[in-house]
Amino acid sequence: MIELHELTKRYGDTLAVDGLSFQVRRGVVTGFLGPNGAGKSTTMRMILDLDRPTSGRVTIDGKHYGQLSEPLKYIGALLEAKAVHPGRTARDHLRWLAQSNRIPPRRVDEVLGLVGLSPVAGKRSRGFSLGMGQRLGIASALLGDPEIVMFDEPVNGLDPEGILWIRNLMKSLAAEGRTVFVSSHLMSEMALTADHLVVIGRGRLLADLPMPEFIRQNSRSAVRIRTPQVEQLLTALDRAGLRAEAGPAGTYEVVDGDPTRIGELAAAHGVVLHELSPQQASLEEAFMQMTADSVEYHAGDGEGRDAAGAWGATWQPKAPRQEAN
């Protein structure tokens, strides 16, 4: 289990990660979602003790990363594709990595087979495509047969076949009982793979909940209706106990409505319909809405506005409590 406790990282005036606390639980795929620049990679680097937190701490099974003996056997990570010397062969890259943590040499060929790189094991990585580089990175993450795997934006820049492969790989790793922590800036990708979701924006925790819960809270379905006989329709709906809200461009929407029932109702009252369509708010929209503020701040022009936003947000919730005291 990975535990973050009030983890904070400041680069000069910028708070890249701001008091982040959450846990990555065993045996499930936890999606780590946030817009670009939200602090996902910085958080992952701090988990691996590559970047030092300004304050707060992060532990793996209760230990600081530096206290793990032979850490590749606990946690394997893919941070960036092609963090490999271009003149070294795939096999040699995995070999030095295996030796450093006393991982048996046969494991090198095993993981090469697992990621489908056996045919190019003896080739220098200079000629590798992005997808092959990504596979080599995943091979190094799996090398120590770790309990926890961590992937930073693993599908970035991959072709559909590669994306599908990574998706299935993560599911099978979790099915084996491993802990999978994967970052992405794409909600749609997470919806397909993650069991649990952690959303951050501007370095702050926005949501930490199971995926089904997130979907339940955030997916809104409605039936959109367009008609020239508005009055008649609204009356008919009202009598049937349905509430219609005004939608865009002269349409009306019935939240959680059933199109069949509404269609029959309209026919029974002789109402002409120009449109009757089920609408599904996508998770992508829900995510965008959730992170809209943080993205806005991020794209914001002035330091002043930036600081005011951060100040206001941290100050306001505390104020009532102070008054109560």
Binding site: D49, Y65, P71, A77, K82, V84, H85, L97
Partner: peptide, 18 residues
């Protein structure tokens, strides 16, 4: 230096945090 130019230093330090 080739560890820094390729980003491999992060792989090395993840393997050997000391």
């Amino acid at each position: 230096g080739n560890e820094y130019s390729t980003g491999m230093i992060r792989v090395s330090l993840a393997a050997v945090p000391q």
